[in-house]
Structure formats: structure tokens, C-alpha cells
């Protein structure tokens, strides 16, 4: 796939599958997407949709029994099946990832400053002295208050928000071209969430870095993303510009997600329309459209034939009866 845009990351037909004693799990099924330099793509979906698995595959961090197929190229270089050493060099340098719970990625017994410095020593051949000085700068860029004092603190001495800033400092240490943020603010207060998101946005702009922002919150996506991909049962069901998806969604799932979210700016007497049933389980593959058991308008075709992603109104939609041109189809 060659395009005029300079894509930092191209994912093509990515699938992740596990064989377990209870049967096969198709965690990710045939996902393709591109992220350009300086662009943010929001990746949304409910628990189990395959958001983390897709990007852990890109990072080469899946469990050993994962079966991966497809391609993932970082600035043209194939990542899937690449030499583990080369991949390790890329990770933490050109390609970085932060997670929901920074506590699990930070070493508990090492002071914060040394954890940041270590990345620089390993990837940039700096001396420890240089690296510690640089660590201070990185913490300041991550808007850590009292940065000099924080260098000598342990992770447990910091608040959740501060720890996430430290993770951002570590991720940015080697100037990555691509940052993957997996639910970076889900465990935080809305106030701290807004601070972290605006920090990520600023850093992205300043560095021309690409950002994949994984979240289940469409409000988070609205503040940051240029593009959005909605995942359901391991597949992309809709992708396109953030404006198109949030203002005029074509897929019934995207529309239903928006209607089921209580909004602080919407009239309270508007009913909250819950989506019935359960979020998908990749352990139980669904015939036809994976969303059909929960779809308000699912005629019989949806139960037998899986809709392919196709271009509609400038977005990619996997639905037999997308909302914009579905007026006749919906009134069944």
C-alpha cells in the first residue's frame, strides 16, 4: 500500500489467534489501518474487542503461544516476525508504548530518575551522568511538578497521574516516531485525565509524533484523535475521520455506543438507550455480522453473511445496512 501520505505505521490484514484447551480464540481478525506522522488515531471498542492484542502484536509483545498473521510496517520496516534483537532496539526507541497501569511497567525498587536514565544509557549510549541530566529535562517536559525531587523518588511515592507522566517521560526518552497509548487515563480522575491528554497532544504536535490512543471512551477520542477505528469482536467495524464517526456514524454499533453514553452536555430527559446483550467474546465466533445479536436492525442477511469493510461517505464501514443509506432497509 503506497500513498501520498507519509505513513509511520501501516498495519495490513493483522490477525492474532490463540489455540486454548477451550478452543480457538480469534483475538484480532484481519485488521488494516494506517497512521501518518503527527496524526492521532483513536482505537475504541469494549472489553475484549482486541484493541490491546492488535497493538501488542505490533510491539512484538504477545504471549509466546499467539499465532500472528499479516503485516505491520514501521516506516516501511516489517515488524512482525522481525529478529527479536532488532525489535528490542526499535522498542523504546522509534516505537514506544504506555499502559493503563504504570505500576506494572515501572520497577518498584528503582528510583524514577534512574528508570528514565536507563533507557538513554541503553538506547543512546549516554553516560549515566548525562542520562540523569536528560531525565530531569524529560520529567519537566512531561509537566511533572517538582521534577528534581521526583528523580530520587520511588514509583509508590507518586500519585497515579504522576506515575503516568513518568511513563510518558520514559516513552519519549528516545524520541519515538510512534507512540502507542493503551488506556493511558482509564484509571485516573477526569481532571488528571484531561491534563495527561492535553500533554500527549502537545508533545505530539511538538515532535510530529504519531499516536495510537486506545480507549473505550468516545469523549477521550473527541479531544485528541484525527482518525478513529471502532473495533468489535476483533474486527474494525467502522473507521474514518473523528468528525464523521462521532457526528454521523454509519455503523449501528458506533451509533449505539454514542447513544448509550450519558453525556454531561445532553438534556437529561433524553432516554439512555442501552445496547442489549453482552460485549463480544472471541471464544464464541458469531456467524454473519458479529454485531447482529445486539443490532436493532438486523434482517436475516446479517445472521448469515459477514459484511466486508467498504467505503461509504468517506468512511470504512462493515455493515450490510449502514445508517446513512439505510432508511428503507431499517423499516423492516
Amino acid at each position: 500500500m503506497t500513498s501520498a501520505r507519509s505513513n509511520v505505521l501501516e498495519i495490513e490484514s493483522l490477525s492474532v489467534r490463540y489455540e486454548t484447551p477451550d478452543g480457538a480464540v480469534q483475538a484480532v481478525a484481519d485488521i488494516s489501518l494506517e497512521i501518518a506522522a503527527g496524526e492521532c488515531i483513536g482505537v475504541v471498542g469494549e472489553s475484549g474487542a482486541g484493541k490491546s492484542q492488535a497493538f501488542l502484536a505490533v510491539m512484538g509483545l504477545l504471549a509466546p503461544n499467539a499465532q500472528v498473521a499479516g503485516d505491520a510496517r514501521l516506516r516501511g520496516r516489517e515488524l512482525l516476525g522481525a529478529d527479536p534483537r532488532a525489535l528490542r532496539d526499535l522498542r523504546g526507541a522509534e516505537l514506544a508504548m504506555i499502559f493503563q497501569d504504570p505500576m506494572t511497567s515501572l520497577a518498584p525498587h528503582i528510583v524514577v530518575g534512574d528508570q528514565i536514565a536507563e533507557v538513554l544509557v541503553v538506547h543512546k549510549n549516554m553516560s549515566w551522568r548525562e542520562a540523569r541530566a536528560q531525565a530531569l529535562q524529560l520529567l519537566e517536559q512531561a509537566q511533572v511538578t517538582d521534577a528534581a525531587r521526583r528523580l530520587t523518588q520511588y514509583p509508590h511515592e507518586l500519585s497515579g497521574g504522576m506515575r503516568q507522566r513518568v511513563m510518558i517521560a520514559i516513552a519519549l526518552a528516545c524520541d519515538p516516531v510512534m507512540l502507542i497509548a493503551d488506556e493511558p487515563t482509564t484509571a485516573l480522575d477526569v481532571s488528571v485525565q484531561a491534563q495527561i491528554l492535553s500533554l500527549l497532544k502537545r508533545l505530539m504536535r511538538e515532535r510530529g509524533m504519531a499516536l495510537a490512543l486506545i480507549t473505550h471512551d468516545l469523549g477521550v477520542v473527541a479531544g485528541l484523535a484525527d482518525q478513529v477505528a471502532v473495533l468489535y469482536a476483533g474486527r474494525i467495524v467502522e473507521s474514518g475521520s473523528v468528525r464523521k464517526l462521532l457526528k454521523n456514524p454509519s455503523h449501528p454499533y458506533t451509533a449505539a455506543l454514542l447513544r448509550s453514553m450519558p453525556r454531561i452536555d445532553a438534556p437529561v430527559d433524553e432516554p439512555l438507550v442501552a445496547i442489549g446483550g453482552q460485549p463480544p467474546s472471541p471464544r464464541q465466533p458469531i456467524a454473519g455480522c458479529p454485531f447482529h445479536p445486539r443490532c436493532a436492525a438486523a434482517p436475516s442477511r446479517c445472521t448469515t453473511e459477514r459484511p466486508e469493510l467498504r467505503r461509504i461517505d468517506g468512511a470504512q464501514v462493515a455493515c450490510h445496512f449502514p445508517r446513512s443509506n439505510s432508511a428503507s432497509a431499517i423499516t423492516l
Binding site: D189, V190, Q193, Q195, A222, V242, K247, L258, D265
Partner: peptide, 20 residues
Amino acid sequence: LASVPIPDPDLQPARLETSL
């Protein structure tokens, strides 16, 4: 209240900057 994200790409980017 200003920190609560709303799924509107026309309003939310500016709201991000007015948070606590």
C-alpha cells in the same frame, strides 16, 4: 465539570485545555 470529556470533536479539544 470542565474536565468531563464529551464526544464532540468540535468542542472537546478546547475543553481539554480548561480542565483543573
